[in-house]
Design a protein around this nucleic acid. Structure first.
Length: 239
DNA sequence: ACAAATACCTGTAAGC
DNA sequence: TGCTTACAGGTATTTG
């Protein structure tokens, strides 16, 4: 767990949780004292509601205890997650000033300026949080499939009519994924705050489906490496 | 400025 | 069975 002074949660003692928010993959818990608890789950983190008597899961790194609402526990086996308190009055806090605009509100114009002149693969730009906040490995692949664009294409070569498809696909994929409660993969790492698994993994068209027939055309889905990560796409539907 | 490689951790699955 | 290796949804940092 990065950026987590030991006295982290003591700063919130006695305060009331007033609202929660989000920008990209960062979660914000805002408190009556004006501080914001910023949480990033990274690859293996979970934020789980629990009763005080529930046994502590392994790798529980922080526990928020409420007077009447039980506990909120931060569990993270790989310790990549991030937890810190910011004094910024308005989220997103100053610590996250490099974050790009949230992906849910992205417009074709934003994609145009973000991709222009870039030689990097389209997918590499989509998951760059300074460009667009909120898209990760799974959704980048699914967005590229919905937009019928190869993820390994040089980003700067995407044409205007394709930018429009990309923008529309980003919105529709992310909205559908949120509606389905997110993607809980085989490792079961993602669960919502109540411990419920998501269902969007059932709707993945290409992610994790190397060798399976494309849902649209039947051609085998392929897996390639983009940087250090896997990328999945249909070589017939996507160009 | 951009792009690519690497490091950070633990858990799990695959391969021998 | 037991061991080794590769890989996993992310991002900061280093290197080119």
């Amino acid at each position: 767990m990065r950026r987590h002074p030991p006295e982290l949660l003591a700063q919130l003692q006695g305060q009331i949780l007033s609202s929660v928010g989000r920008h990209g993959k960062y979660l914000f818990l805002e408190w009556s004292g004006g501080q914001v608890l910023v949480v990033h789950l990274r690859m293996s983190g979970q934020l789980l509601a629990a009763r005080p008597r529930d046994p502590l899961a392994p790798h529980t790194h922080a526990v928020l205890r409420f007077d009447r609402a039980g506990e909120l526990r931060f569990v993270d086996p790989r310790t990549f997650g991030e937890l810190f308190v910011s004094a910024s009055p308005q989220p997103p806090p100053v610590e996250l000033e490099d974050l790009g605009p949230d992906a849910l509100g992205a417009s074709p114009g934003l994609f145009r300026s973000a991709l222009a002149g870039r030689r990097a693969p389209l997918k590499a730009v989509l998951v760059d949080q300074r460009v667009l906040a909120g898209v990760g490995n799974i959704y980048a692949d699914e967005i590229c499939f919905a937009a019928r664009l190869r993820p390994d294409r040089p980003a700067g070569g995407v044409r205007p009519h394709e930018l429009r498809r990309l923008s529309e696909s980003a919105r529709s994929v992310l909205e559908a994924a949120i509606a389905a409660g997110g993607s809980t993969l085989r490792d079961e790492r993602y669960r919502d705050v109540l411990g419920e698994a998501g269902q969007y993994q059932l709707e993945h068209k290409v992610y994790g489906r190397a060798g399976e027939p494309c849902a649209k055309c039947g051609a085998p889905v392929v897996r390639v490496r983009i940087g250090a990560k896997s990328a999945y796409f249909c070589p017939r539907c996507q160009s």
